[in-house]
Design a protein around this nucleic acid. Sequence first.
DNA 1: TCACATTTGACAATATATTGTCAAAATAGC
DNA 2: GCTATTTTGACAATATATTGTCAAATGTGA
Lengths: 151, 151
Amino acid sequence: MSKEKWTEAGEAVTALILDIFRLNSRLLLTGDRLVADLGLTSARWQVLGSIAYAEQPQTVAWHARSMGHHRQGIQRIVNELKAEEIIEFKANPQHKRAHLVLLTPKGQDLFDAAIERQIPWVNALSSDVKPADLEATRRVVHQLKTRLEQD
Amino acid sequence: MSKEKWTEAGEAVTALILDIFRLNSRLLLTGDRLVADLGLTSARWQVLGSIAYAEQPQTVAWHARSMGHHRQGIQRIVNELKAEEIIEFKANPQHKRAHLVLLTPKGQDLFDAAIERQIPWVNALSSDVKPADLEATRRVVHQLKTRLEQD
DNA sequence: TCACATTTGACAATATATTGTCAAAATAGC
DNA sequence: GCTATTTTGACAATATATTGTCAAATGTGA
């Protein structure tokens, strides 16, 4: 016998969460395909994006936190990207061991190439989404994300 | 020099995707915590949900497809759940080897217990989301998911 | 009915993610 | 300044996910 009941919003968010799980896995899969022959994966691409869009060069731990991933996982990817000269380390004036990560010119080119593919893909994907719906979606997703990140 | 440009919607969806990645990982993390002491994880819970809500008992491969996961990953989890007598197999009249999966009474109790925790959690999480925004969000997420699943 | 493709679970190999520990370095509180 | 706590990268162990292969079973098309 159930004591608790969903509110209307609770029920809707429950259904939304299940759809988000599936959407997330589809996005990763599609992303993998989109950049596979560039030597990238969704995971690598996401790391490059975090580096490319950071206001300042940052440490591995910072990027991991920022993406909501484990430090060790990002470190592994960053080490690979370093070996392939896609990123490089720069001395950190604030910390002797925690170097700052930045894109090499080759890494920047690679990231640009990925973006060149992402643009027509995402434009097509989003072409018949209503702008008002899209705004609302960004509000909700951002709100949920922020709430969950507070713990 | 970039040849392509984002449409407004394309730019918004790009930002949305990044937020969805983070929201997804937070949801998994929070889900793990919510049911950890029941002996569940987000992954196990999701499998139980797929079994519990299926109209008919289904095969492992069906559930994997339905969740957008690999057959082998779901098989591994199902085998564990079987060993713990949370699910059981039933002979499939249509297929000699591909058995149907269903919850045992113990499994049903476990799933109910998880739901009992999920309800107050999701009610609180969604309490100040505007109903109209929520509807729009479900539309958009569903639309994007459906589009990506067509490939 | 018969060949041929597809689906399925089992199994194995590999890749990736997660968790834990350590010591160096930095930060906070005194 | 000095100690305690926190952050960080390195390393290792484990867990989980992904990919590939196989043979049994089913489905498909002549």
